[in-house]
C-alpha cells in the first residue's frame, strides 16, 4: 500500500515535470503560460506533502 502511495508522488512529479517543461518551452502565448502555472499549483502542494 505504502509503495503505491509513493508511486503516486512519482506520477504527480512526472506530470508536474511535463508542465514545467512545457512552461519553459512556451515563448509566445502568455495565456498558456499562466494555465501551466495554475495546473502546477495543486500538484506542487501535493508533492511537498502540504495538502
Amino acid at each position: 500500500m505504502f509503495i503505491v502511495m509513493i508511486i503516486y508522488y512519482f506520477i504527480s512529479a512526472y506530470i508536474a515535470g511535463m508542465l514545467i517543461w512545457n512552461f519553459v518551452r512556451e515563448k509566445k502565448d502568455m495565456q498558456q503560460m499562466l494555465l501551466y502555472l495554475i495546473v502546477l499549483v495543486p500538484l506542487v502542494l501535493r508533492i511537498f506533502h502540504i495538502r
Binding site: Y14, I15, M18, L19, N22, Q32, L35, I38, V39, P42
Partner: peptide, 18 residues
C-alpha cells in the same frame, strides 16, 4: 510524447483546476 500530450490537454486540465 508525454510533454506534447500534456500540452494538448492543457485547456482541459486548466479547466478542471480553475
Amino acid at each position: 510524447l508525454s510533454r506534447d500530450t500534456v500540452k494538448l490537454l492543457l485547456p482541459l486540465l486548466a479547466t478542471m483546476a480553475v
